[in-house]
Design a protein around this nucleic acid. Structure first.
Length: 668
RNA sequence: GCUCGAUUAGCUCAGUGGUAGAGCAACUGUUUCGUAAACAGUAGGUCGUCGGUUCAAGUCCGACAUUGAGCUCCA
């Protein structure tokens, strides 16, 4: 770093360095893996000129920031390839995303899989050409003239950053910039409006990328806009990293609850019944029953009262609750009853509309209202496994996690203002403890609050403020990570939702604890206070599983079908080494059956090895074998799902191992 | 709801306009076996539904249903 001219001091990776005036990242970093740099916290190209007192850190290609740049640059190369091969394609946006990137194009004909292969091939050629990414800072006018043939880019230039969503890769709050790809001979290859930064050279993209799928996407995410054709891809610094990524996807596909649901005979969606309406088969039924039984027992302990309400109601109820105003799109259309119309078209008898319920709250409210309530009854906690039906749009249905008919483990809590904090604290603890019992133990909380000044949110400012503060306090006290979700509240109140991470790190919204300032008002709920006056209770909506169906699907994927013994449909299968030892196992299994252990003996005439294979594929937690040796010694042998064995276990000890695993909710 | 794709035996899949196939599962026999697939045989299908093109349709076209990926939505 000796130089001509003046020297300036900079802070490189925290240490003071002297560099020549006008030095760039290329002068600072010799490592090939450094592909960009942070300058005073901002990601910059290596070609960026450093000035005095700058704080500079290199960005490695396999760091989170480096991967984003790699993927974004790969997206540029893809767009270049697409525009070469489809000259009429107009550019949408092309950002990096988790594990990859996409780019949107306005084209006459949607892309087909063969197109993707051809584009990928052309991309590899472009990577081999060693094109340089060159940043050009431009004025609005220059940008408009450079992007004159790109109507969507012109729209973005017009918008600038104020209206563009956060994380935009096209425009930033500063000036505009354009990135040009130039060939080694200096000739121009391609350009895009882009804030950068980029890799120095396309060669650094390497070969470890892949185009994965194409799909339509609305321009700027608005369904009233035109649909553009989006191509998704994934990109990694090394071949190994790409292969690991593909392996992760394969593993995730193997534990897909829809696949496991069929393989393990848990549930199905018969076409005859209709989209999004599941039936649970006997084996899925056992799991569900155990889940429900345990939940009921816990609710009983925690002071909940059990209520039951019907699945349909006259329209009046949902008119009063307001659902028909703001939720009718999500409701099945009404059943029209009792109307009588004469042949002349004259209405002789006014009919009544009945609706399937999309929510349980109004029903519970009617129970609250069935008589006058005293403050002494509060908090009043009503619990129900309530089946609700929602007319979800056909395109959003997804296995058990997005259905049209579901059962919520729904509770509504009616509390006084004074009780709110304590009740919320205990509800959150209750929810987390129960989720842990089901084997989920990696959580974070999301606090959804109101957007200031948006008129859609009902209720007095003071109530919102104090309730939000209370929720936040409760969330903080839990000690869990708390993520803010400003503007994400329902119009009727703020909420905490529990996000759980499953065994392979995906997050699922599970429980919600939601305050409601709207329904108590609409239904004029009141209780008599100690002062003899009438007061309005605060209402808390609370679901723990979200829906049983959804929770079932999440648990299936979390365990990859290897349910712990307490949940497993079949807890143990006994396999005699040959038929003559079946009686011995019958008596072993028989005594556990009297204790309600779900155990049976495989009497089929398959070979022992075949039986082991079948029950292993069925993910039975305990496989128990016995042959001549065991009969003689009064023992059995365990074979576990992972192939491990424990041989020569005395009968009583074997029984205790099984009992303990079930009652302690252990995984085996 | 929108875009693109898929739908053949219980399951996984082959079948590119001319006589519907395989493996597994099921069933029947034989086999009785010490830790992930014994052997043989039998049965099983209006090729999602309806309509069209054609001498002829699982195959080409259209609508609908179901489903997959993505978008939008998810109070």
């Amino acid at each position: 770093m000796e130089g001509k001219g003046a020297q300036v001091n900079i802070l490189l990776a925290g240490k003071t360095h002297q560099v020549s005036e006008g030095a760039t990242g290329f002068d600072l970093f010799e490592l090939r893996e450094v592909i960009a740099m942070h300058v005073n916290g901002e990601a910059r190209d290596l070609s960026h000129v450093i000035t005095a007192e700058d704080q500079v850190e290199g960005i490695l290609i396999d760091s989170p920031a480096g991967l984003e740049i790699l993927r974004h640059s790969t997206a540029h190369v893809m767009a270049q390839a697409v525009q070469e091969m489809f000259p009429d394609a107009k550019l949408g946006i092309g950002p990096y995303i988790t594990d990859g990137f996409y780019f949107d194009f306005d084209v006459e004909e949607p892309f087909v899989p063969e197109d993707l292969k051809r584009i990928e091939k052309r991309m590899k050629e472009l990577v081999g050409k060693s094109q340089r990414f060159t940043r050009v800072e431009v004025s609005d006018e220059e940008a408009k003239s450079l992007m004159a043939n790109e109507p969507y880019k012109l729209e973005l230039i017009g918008l600038k950053s104020e209206d563009v969503q956060e994380g935009s890769v096209e425009v930033s709050s500063g000036g505009l910039s354009v990135y040009e790809n130039t060939n080694p001979d200096g000739s121009f290859a391609w350009r895009d409006l882009c804030r950068g930064p980029h890799l120095p050279n396309t060669r650094q993209i390497g070969k470890s990328f892949s185009l994965t799928r194409s799909a339509a996407a609305y321009w700027r995410g608005n369904e009233n806009n035109k649909q553009l054709q989006r191509i998704y891809g994934t990109a990694w610094p090394t071949k190994e990293a790409l292969e690991e990524h593909l392996e992760r996807i394969e593993q995730a596909a193997k534990r897909d609850h829809r696949k496991l649901g069929a393989e393990l005979d848990l549930f199905s969606f018969p076409e005859e019944i209709g989209s999004g309406l599941a039936v649970f088969h006997p084996k899925g039924g056992i799991i569900r029953k155990v889940m429900e039984d345990y939940s009921r027992a816990k609710h009983e302990e925690a002071g909940y009262e059990f209520v039951y309400t019907p699945h349909i109601t006259k329209s009046n109820l949902f008119e009063q609750s307001g659902h028909l105003n703001w939720y009718s799109d999500g409701m099945f259309p009404p059943m029209k009853l009792d109307a009588e119309v004469g042949e002349d078209g004259e209405v002789r008898k006014q009919g009544v509309d009945y609706y399937l319920k999309p929510m349980n709250c109004p029903f519970h409210i009617l129970i609250f209202k069935s008589r006058s309530r005293s403050y002494r009854e509060l908090p009043l906690r009503m619990f129900e496994f309530g089946s609700v039906y929602r007319y979800e749009k056909s395109g959003v249905l997804h296995g058990l996690t997005r259905v049209r008919g579901m059962t919520q483990d729904d509770a509504h809590l009616f509390v006084t203002q004074d009780q709110l904090q304590e009740e919320l604290t205990s509800v959150l603890k209750f929810v987390l403890d129960l989720l842990r019992d089901y084997g989920l133990n990696d959580f974070y909380l999301e606090l959804s609050t109101r957007e200031e000044g948006n008129p859609k949110f009902v209720g007095e400012d003071a109530i919102w403020e104090s309730a939000t503060k209370t929720l936040e306090q409760v969330a903080k006290d839990s000690g869990l990570e708390l993520v803010a979700d400003p503007g994400g509240a329902a119009f009727y109140g703020p909420k905490i939702s529990v996000q759980a991470r499953d065994a392979i790190g995906r997050t699922w919204q599970m429980s919600t604890i939601q305050l409601d300032f709207n329904l108590p008002d609409r239904f004029k709920l009141e209780y008599v206070g100690s002062d003899g006056g009438r007061h309005q209770p605060i209402m808390i909506h609370r679901a723990l599983f979200g829906s049983i169906e959804r929770f079932f699907g999440v648990l299936t994927e979390h365990y990859a079908g290897h349910f712990p013994p307490w949940l497993a449909p079949v807890q143990a299968v006994c396999i005699p080494v040959s038929d003559e030892f079946a009686d011995y196992l019958d008596s072993f299994a028989g005594s556990l059956k009297t204790e309600s252990v779900r155990i049976n003996v495989d009497h089929s005439d398959s070979r022992m090895q075949k039986k082991i294979r079948d029950h292993t594929l069925d993910r039975v937690p305990f496989i128990i074998l016995a042959g001549a040796r065991d009969v003689e010694a009064g023992t059995v042998a365990f074979r576990f799902r992972d192939g491990n064995q424990r041989n020569d276990i005395p009968l009583e000890e074997a029984k205790q191992i099984i009992r303990d695993a079930i009652s302690n909710k252990e995984q085996v």
